[in-house]
């Protein structure tokens, strides 16, 4: 790739990739946690209903209402996962943009951004 005013853009791309990797590794655990939370939540729901049915505390109507509530919970969990993922994407993009902004300023000697 080009070298402009002693700025080697191959190096810039590598630097940008490293910046993106750092953001991803710093943030991935949070996204993984909520996915685990969703999966465990589904198992817990079934256990809860089974337990309450066995003890006679839940009739079919109670189970139906509880599951309706879990639908709303599922929506919120999906949204929360989306929010976290979008936040990660935003950080990755902005980390890459920062690297290029500096490089372009140096290469072109223009204060464009």
């Amino acid at each position: 790739m080009a070298t402009i005013n002693n700025v080697n853009f191959d190096d810039v791309v590598n630097e940008a990739l490293k910046a993106a990797q750092i953001v991803l590794s710093d943030n991935w655990d949070e996204a993984r946690d909520i996915v685990e939370n969703i999966a465990k939540g589904l198992v817990n729901d079934v256990s809860f209903i089974a337990k309450k049915k066995l003890s006679g505390e839940f009739n079919e109507d109670d189970a139906r209402v509880y599951l309706e509530d879990q639908k709303m919970l599922a929506r919120v969990r999906l949204r929360s996962l989306a929010i976290i993922t979008l936040q990660i994407a935003e950080r990755v993009w902005n980390a890459i943009a920062d690297v290029f902004r500096t490089a372009i300023k140096t290469a072109l000697k223009w204060l464009l951004l």
Partner: peptide
């Protein structure tokens, strides 16, 4: 019944947890 309230407690906790997880991540 008590079990209805117990189910609600679980649901409320989990919903607020999911919301706060996303918001505090920022």
């Amino acid at each position: 019944k008590k079990a209805n309230w117990e189910g609600r407690k679980l649901t409320l906790f989990n919903i607020v947890f999911a919301i706060e997880k996303a918001e505090s991540f920022k």
